[in-house]
Structure formats: structure tokens, C-alpha cells
């Protein structure tokens, strides 16, 4: 039985003043404070980031990259495992 999912957060870092925040990856954490700490521990080990943002992945709305908008629903949520419908032959994933 798979454990309850811990929320995913996207991490953005501004490495130096004058630069914009850049997306660097994601972390898992139960809440915002722990997400911030996880992001700091994971993504700023070699260089101290000046500013760190963590955003719940579920809060991000992404534009549709497909050229033919008719094939896909517009404005898909960024990503979440349950939104992907896989063919049966894939089995457990």
C-alpha cells in the first residue's frame, strides 16, 4: 500500500541580487516551513542563494505546449501523477 503522498513543492532561487529567480527543481515537504528548509539544504549547498521561493506544485498552472490545441485540454495543471492516464499494459506505475 503506497504511503500517503507528501506534497511536492517547486523551488526557485535568486542566486545574486540583480538576477531573477530561477526554477531549480522540487522538494517534498509536509508544509511550507519544512519545504523552505529542504530547498535550502538541497539546492544551496555550494552557493548561498540570496532568495528562495517554494511553491506547491499544485498551485502552478502551465501553458499548453502542444501546437494543436484541439488534442489537449488547455491550461493543464503542471503535473501530478493522478492526472496521467496510462495504458493498462504498463502495469504498476
Amino acid at each position: 500500500m503506497t504511503e500517503t503522498l507528501t506534497p511536492l513543492w517547486e523551488v526557485f532561487i535568486r542566486a545574486r541580487t540583480g538576477l531573477a529567480h530561477r526554477h531549480v527543481g522540487s522538494v517534498h515537504a509536509a508544509d511550507a516551513e519544512m519545504a523552505l528548509q529542504a530547498a535550502r539544504d538541497t539546492y544551496t549547498r555550494r552557493d548561498e542563494g540570496v532568495s528562495l521561493w517554494v511553491v506547491p506544485s499544485a498551485a502552478i498552472t502551465a501553458s499548453d505546449p502542444a501546437e494543436e490545441a484541439t488534442l489537449f485540454e488547455p491550461a493543464k495543471p503542471y503535473r501530478h501523477p493522478s492526472f496521467y492516464v496510462l495504458p493498462d499494459e504498463v502495469g504498476d506505475m
Binding site: V27, H28, A29, Q37, A38, D41, T42, R45
Partner: peptide
């Protein structure tokens, strides 16, 4: 208990 904590305790 979690990979993030491996990082934190290691730090």
C-alpha cells in the same frame, strides 16, 4: 526517516 533529513542532519 526521509531523504530530506539525510541532507539536513548531514549539513
Amino acid at each position: 526517516p526521509l531523504l530530506e533529513e539525510e541532507m539536513a542532519l548531514g549539513n
